[in-house]
């Protein structure tokens, strides 16, 4: 058994980006199969156009339509591409100075091997048939002399002011060793806290570092699955990813024997009847659904005992 519990997690969102006028002009150009540079205050032409002039710091407002050919000024061979790159098999990234521009542009060059690319090589754009107004609308290929013969045109393409950029990253998440013992306990239907060797408080879940003392919690304490609602809110609002139909209660439950409350759901009672101090008991999912997760506990439900006195839990608010 590994020291810690681990699981994959994907962090993914399709970001909506408003481009502003300069990047918008550049991306609109790409949609039209045209490379647009920006003229800087010192007379140079930069591709892509910077939003603000590096010298005068003013917004760049003068644009220059350039040919879709250029020269490789540096390159590298991507022997092991990662997800999202312009090619799934090995390819080249290059710094390409577009004809008429003074600064290089980072882009991909589609060649079969590193022997097919060199500094000083002439390249031209190979445009996608369907263009959205993004840097992925083209890749560069060696210029065979028939420049732009097959270059598409779409001069009246709609202006680009907004792009969607998907960002999806895969991570392997690990719990700390202390948390891992807690989650493994749950898989056996046990709630395992740990006591801090210094302040003697019982933490559930246990901690890699007691937040008061900065030392790991250590001494294992098996806790009851009965506790007291310290405070709560009634969720009436629907939101992204919600699993239960509102209204319902999200509460802090202080398990008997613990010194810190857990956040969990209170069900089997109308939301308006939930009270601070109410005594509740864990309702476990059927055993065959258990995993190494706090979600083995479906929710908490009232025990029917009298409410706890405010003084017994007020220091947990």
């Amino acid at each position: 058994m590994s020291r810690t519990l681990q699981a994959p997690v994907t962090v993914a969102f399709d970001y909506t980006r408003s481009t502003g006028p300069v990047i918008g002009r550049f991306l609109t150009g790409l949609k039209q199969a045209t490379i647009v540079g920006g003229r800087l205050s010192d007379g140079r032409v930069a591709v892509p156009p910077p939003e603000y002039d590096p010298v005068s710091h003013q917004a760049v407002t003068e644009f220059v339509e350039l040919p879709d050919t250029g020269t490789v000024t540096s390159w590298t061979w991507v022997s092991e591409p990662v997800a999202g790159q312009p090619s799934e098999s090995a390819f080249a990234y290059a710094l390409i100075t577009i004809d008429g521009a003074d600064t290089p542009w980072l882009h991909a060059v589609d060649v079969a091997s590193p022997d097919d690319i060199s500094t000083g090589m002439r390249v031209r754009a190979r445009w996608a048939a369907e263009r959205t107004g993004a840097v992925t609308d083209l890749v560069f290929v060696p210029d065979d002399g028939t420049t732009s013969a097959d270059r598409p045109t779409e001069p009246d393409a709609e202006e680009v002011s907004r792009i969607i950029t998907p960002v999806s990253l895969d991570y392997r998440y690990a719990a700390s060793p202390e948390e891992s013992s807690f989650f493994r306990g749950l898989a056996e239907g046990r709630i395992l806290g740990q006591r801090c060797p210094k302040c003697r408080k019982v933490y559930v879940p246990p901690r890699g570092a007691c937040p008061t003392d900065g030392v790991p919690t250590s001494e294992e304490v098996e806790l009851s699955d009965v506790g007291t609602v310290t405070t709560f809110c009634v969720v009436n609002v629907p939101f992204m990813g919600q699993k239960i139909k509102p209204p319902y209660v999200s509460a802090y439950v202080l398990l008997d024997g613990a010194d810190i409350a857990l956040q969990h759901l209170i069900l089997e009672i109308p939301a308006e009847e939930v009270r601070m101090g109410m005594r509740v008991k864990a309702v476990w999912k059927p055993r065959e659904e258990w995993g190494t997760s706090i979600e083995n506990i479906s929710h908490f439900a009232p025990t029917g005992e009298p409410d706890a006195d405010f003084d017994t839990y007020k220091h947990h608010l």
Partner: peptide
């Protein structure tokens, strides 16, 4: 925890560079 050189592509210009996911190693190689 992730694929480092890919994660670092998020440090680049989000409009004109990151969509191509150039990784840090490639930038250093250039």
């Amino acid at each position: 925890a992730g694929v480092l050189r890919r994660t670092l592509a998020l440090q680049l210009d989000p409009y004109t560079m990151t969509p191509l996911w150039p990784d840090t190693v490639c930038l250093a190689a250039l």
